[in-house]
């Protein structure tokens, strides 16, 4: 144990690994930022050192806002993500409450069903779902995604909230009932305020998952001006074999900002949510 906290030891056990991870995991972002600010003249010069940024320009960002539908895509993504998040949270709070706090026959089974629903990936469903959505007359409308994103948001959020509701002592609710509150009052006034951090975690999760979704957006809302940011960037900004790297990377940076902000405000909720979802019920 001697010297296990010495500086030399720390270099190998802490600083070197951290440096490796920081460089490996953050380099693509740094690269996107550099390219997005670089003049085309330098981007085309394959002999120049590509890591240096000389004569930074916001030309690519300007192009994005004035020559492409980027703002419209952002609006689309926002509407769809917020809509799907609100719908999913409403449904999930109820399901999570039912499965987390009520004892009833079949309760465990429904918990398993919800968990299995979480494991069903969009890859498995997108083909028939496209038919279903157009049969319901929702194709290429906001509703197409507002109703389909919850198929992966509700199972996850319900599972997370179910675990959260279980941690709130039943005695609190019972005390309220004894004092003459109705069940709904006890739920709304006593349990819900305590569950708010869990609901917040679930909400952030739904928001980032919705913002990042690609396959459903591509298949169900991928035409004309109804594209979401990830789909629009990938399908409209890549036009030919000559890539407009500058504007592509600028779009990458801007498209990441909303989730990065949402998440930096609530990073602790996010981490606890991620692990709750990954490790327990």
């Amino acid at each position: 144990m001697v010297g296990s906290n010495s500086f030399g030891n720390r270099i190998f056990r802490l600083y070197l690994p951290l440096a490796f991870y920081a460089v490996f995991l953050l380099f693509p972002f740094a690269w996107m930022l550099i390219v997005s600010l670089k003049p085309d003249r330098l981007l085309l010069d394959t002999n120049a050192n590509p890591f240096f940024l000389i004569g930074a320009t916001i030309e690519h960002y300007r192009y994005l806002f004035t020559e492409t539908e980027f703002l419209r895509w952002t609006l689309n993504t926002f509407v769809v993500t917020v809509g799907a998040t609100v719908l999913s949270l409403l449904c999930s709070v109820l399901i999570g409450y039912a499965l987390g706090r009520f004892r009833f026959p079949g309760g465990n089974l429904w918990g398993v069903v919800i968990f299995l629903a979480y494991l069903v990936p969009p890859t498995l469903l997108f083909i028939p779902l496209a038919q279903v959505v157009s049969r319901f007359g929702l194709y290429n409308q906001y509703w197409a995604l507002i109703f389909t994103y919850p198929t992966f948001l509700i199972p996850f959020a319900s599972w997370l909230l179910m675990g959260y509701f279980r941690t709130i002592p039943v005695e609190l609710e019972q005390a309220a009932l004894v004092d003459g509150a109705t069940r709904f009052q006890a739920m709304w006034r006593i349990v819900m305020p305590l569950a708010l951090p869990g609901v917040l975690s679930a909400g952030i999760f739904c928001f980032t998952l919705g913002w990042n979704e690609f396959l459903y957006a591509l298949v169900l809302m991928g035409s004309g001006e109804m594209k979401t940011v990830p789909v629009g960037v990938v399908s409209d900004l890549i036009r030919s074999d000559v890539y407009q790297w500058g504007s592509l990377m600028a779009a990458g940076i801007l498209g990441s900002v909303p989730v990065a902000i949402a998440y930096s405000f609530f990073v602790d909720n996010y981490i606890s949510g991620l692990t709750a979802g990954a490790t327990k019920g």
Binding site: L25, L26, P28, F29, W31, M32, T208, W211, N212, F214, V229, P230, V231, V233, V234, L248, M249, A251, G252, G255, S256, V259, A260, Y263, V267, Y270, I271
Partner: peptide, 14 residues
């Protein structure tokens, strides 16, 4: 944690 947060379609562009 960023690689996990950011839209994959976008980081794939990088």
């Amino acid at each position: 944690l960023l690689p996990w947060i950011v839209p994959t379609a976008i980081s794939s562009l990088a």
